[in-house]
Structures are given as C-alpha cells and as structure tokens.
C-alpha cells in the first residue's frame, strides 16, 4: 500500500483528519526546504505538499506567485526539487510527499523519466494543476507504472459527469478546490463546501481533501469536520515571506500555525 493510503487509513482508524501543509520548494533558497519539511512534520503535518516552482503559475494568487518567483531566482528546477525530496527521505520514510505544480516542467523532462526519478526520490503523489483527466492518459500510465499516485482537482464547477471521471482517474486522494478563484482567496463558505463534498463523494471512493481559502485554526477545524484532509498553502507561504531572512523565525511562525491547526482539528473530534 502506498504511503498516502497508509496514512489516510491510520488517521481514519484514529478518527482524525489529515493536515497537509503546502509551500513552494526553494523559496528563500534551496537550503531551507528540507529543514522546513521536517519542521512541518514535527508540528503535526500528516502529508507534505511541495510546490514545484513555475514561471507562469496561472492558478495561484499573488502570495504563491511571489514564492515561485523567489524560488526561480535561485534557479530551483524540478530536478532540484526531486533531490530535496530524496534528502528529506533519508530521515523520514513515513510522511507522504506530494509534488504540486504545472505540467510544463514535467512535460519537458518526459513523463517516464519524471515518474522514474520521482519514485526513486521517494515522492508519493503528484498533482498537476493544469492537467485535467482528459489530457492525463500518458502521465497516468507512466506514474502508475512507478507506483505513484496522481491526484486530481475537483471544483465547485465540476459536474457529476466530471466528478465521475475525476474519481476514476485519481488515486491517493482527490483535492477539492473550495472556491471559484485562485489560491489564497478569501471567501471560504464551509456550508457550500459541505454540500458539494456530498456530491463529490457520490463519485469518489478515496479520501477527499479540501484546499484554497483555509487560513487559520478555525477554518482548518471547520473544514476538518466535513473533509478527510485540510490543505493549507498561502497562509504558510505568507508567513515564510513575512519572516524572510530569519530561518528560526520562519520555523517558529510556520510551525506555530501548523501546530494550532493540528490542535484545533484534533479537539473537534
């Protein structure tokens, strides 16, 4: 069983929900990434979603756009990100790592070469924002051959027909985008998320995580009531940016946020 499935199974057994922090690999320089991943795990992260920087992140709000630009100033490439995951794996063989990014760096590397390298590095899942199931046939074959999960997005606009297709194509979990908008948007409406999740679950048998617009312990706890996993990205990346230049301050701010979210989610049980 994959690390992702094992993790969700263990959490389900404990009656807990998964907390999945995101940040962009290479932000503030490549040396920060692996220590920050370890800090996130220590603070209560169950899975880690590592952003692969891209020059044209069209689905991101300004916070993650700027993180991509900062990482690219350090020339952080997809290969560099894979090396960071391999480094992380030397001390952590349990926490699932998901790469989230855009298709072009993968396309240029080649699907099979990427799948092989990602598997060797210890990546567990891949979420490619601009690759819907319709365009994913070859990527799916390549990733599955290496035992990697391909995680697709579901959205408020997804119809039953689309949700069925997404459910068929996904493994690991499905990532439900909580709102119409880019990452870091403000308007999270828990009731409408709950309604839509009921529809999503009619077509999707694997766990469903929710992201976009989750900013603090309260919104994390509210989403944990209705979802199997809570993804938090811009709120973390903003704290990284706010404490730029001071590694310890970044660890404290990000670790503190994740720990608060963890506590709020677990207290809700």
């Amino acid at each position: 069983m994959s690390r992702i499935a094992t993790t969700f199974e263990r959490l389900a057994g404990q009656g807990r929900k998964a907390l999945i922090p995101y940040f962009t690999a290479g932000d503030q320089g490549p040396a920060l990434t692996v220590p920050l991943m370890r800090r996130l795990v220590a603070a209560g992260a169950d899975l880690i979603e590592l952003g692969v920087p891209f020059s044209d992140p069209a689905a991101e709000g300004p916070v993650i756009q700027m993180a991509c630009e900062r990482a690219l100033e350090h020339d952080v490439s997809l290969r560099d990100v894979l090396a960071m995951v391999a480094d992380f794996r030397r001390e952590d063989d349990e926490t699932p790592v998901i790469l989230m990014g855009y298709l072009n760096p993968v396309e240029v590397m080649g699907y099979e070469a990427f799948a092989r390298a990602a598997s060797e590095a210890g990546v567990d899942g891949v979420l490619i924002v601009d690759m819907p199931p319709e365009e994913a046939e070859e990527a799916l074959a390549a990733l599955r051959a290496e035992g990697l999960d391909l995680i697709f997005l579901a959205a408020p606009t997804s119809t039953d027909e689309r949700l069925e297709r997404i459910g068929r194509a996904s493994s690991g979990f499905v990532y439900y985008v909580s709102l119409k908008g880019v990452t870091g948007s403000a308007a999270l409406d828990v009731a409408s998320v709950a309604d839509k999740l009921a529809q999503v679950r009619r077509h999707v048998e694997i766990p469903v995580g929710v992201g976009f617009g989750i900013k603090d312990a309260a919104s994390a706890a509210a989403i944990a009531e209705v979802a199997d996993a809570v993804v938090v990205g811009s709120a973390i990346v903003q704290r990284i940016a706010d404490n730029a230049g001071d590694e310890q301050a970044i660890f404290d701010a990000v670790g503190g946020l994740v720990a608060e979210m963890r506590a709020a989610m677990d207290n809700n049980r």
């Binding site: 689905a59 819907p132 997005l153 606009t157 997404i166």
Partner: peptide
C-alpha cells in the same frame, strides 16, 4: 473533438475552468 492538432492544442487548464 478534443481540440488536438496532431499532438498540439488540447485543454490544459485547472479543473475549475473545465466546465466553463
């Protein structure tokens, strides 16, 4: 019908935009 010209074209967009 999928918008492909040989290997080119297609619909490489985030899920939220697929239905629109």
């Amino acid at each position: 019908e999928r918008g492909h010209f040989g290997p080119y074209g297609g619909k490489f967009i985030a899920e939220t935009l697929m239905e629109p």
